Simulated scan of single mutants.
Amino acid sequence: MRKTQLVLLTFGAAVLAGFATVTPAAARDYPWCAQGGEYDYPGECAYSTYEQCQASVSGRLLYCDRNPRFAYGQGQPQQPRPPRRVRPAAPY
């Protein structure tokens, strides 16, 4: 009985530790969006090429259009670069 409780406690702690380390997926907008039908504006912006978008919307009563964030120059901001490490000069 004591061994079963220890196993369950260990399993529970492992599950909680797994949940604690989960991070949300980074949202990324692509240049092309599937629009219309069940999608609100700007649509499902998950396509890097017009051809990918066209293949996805085929037969779904949707259409493809530019992602407004890209069309009007509001793409995702660039991540700041980490500071450059400079090696100190060797003393002579």
Rank of each mutant, 00 (worst) to 15 (best):
Y30Q: 13
Y30A: 12
Y30L: 15
P31F: 04
W32G: 01
W32R: 04
W32Y: 14
C33T: 05
C33I: 02
A34S: 15
A34R: 02
Q35M: 11
G36W: 04
G36T: 07
G37R: 05
G37M: 03
G37T: 04
G37S: 12
G37W: 02
E38V: 08
E38K: 10
E38D: 03
E38T: 08
E38P: 00
E38N: 04
E38I: 08
Y39V: 03
Y39W: 15
Y39D: 04
D40K: 12
D40Y: 10
D40W: 11
D40E: 13
D40V: 10
D40I: 10
Y41F: 15
Y41K: 06
Y41Q: 07
P42E: 03
P42A: 05
G43V: 11
G43L: 10
G43A: 11
G43S: 11
E44F: 13
E44N: 15
E44D: 14
C45N: 05
C45Q: 09
C45A: 10
C45Y: 05
A46L: 05
A46M: 03
Y47C: 05
S48V: 12
T49Q: 04
T49R: 03
T49P: 00
T49W: 01
Y50N: 08
Y50D: 10
Y50W: 08
Y50R: 13
E51L: 05
E51A: 12
E51I: 03
Q52N: 14
Q52K: 11
C53T: 09
C53L: 11
C53K: 01
Q54V: 10
Q54I: 09
Q54D: 13
Q54F: 02
A55I: 01
A55Y: 01
S56I: 00
S56K: 05
S56H: 14
V57T: 12
V57F: 04
S58P: 00
S58F: 11
S58E: 15
G59H: 03
G59P: 01
G59C: 08
R60M: 14
R60V: 06
L61F: 09
L62I: 12
L62Q: 14
L62V: 11
Y63M: 07
Y63K: 08
Y63C: 02
C64W: 02
C64E: 08
C64L: 09
C64D: 09
C64S: 08
D65Q: 13
D65W: 09
R66I: 03
R66E: 09
R66C: 01
N67E: 07
P68Q: 08
P68W: 07
P68R: 07
R69H: 10
R69Y: 13
R69K: 12
F70Y: 15
A71E: 15
A71R: 12
A71V: 03
Y72M: 07
Y72P: 00
Y72A: 08
G73Y: 04
G73F: 02
Q74G: 13
Q74V: 01
Q74E: 14
G75Y: 06
G75P: 01
G75M: 07
G75R: 04
Q76W: 01
Q76C: 00
P77S: 09
P77I: 03
P77C: 02
P77R: 07
Q78P: 00
P80S: 09
R81W: 08
R81D: 11
P82F: 08
P82H: 10
P82I: 08
P82D: 13
P83W: 03
P83F: 10
P83T: 09
R84H: 13
R84K: 14
R84F: 13
R84A: 15
R85F: 15
R85G: 12
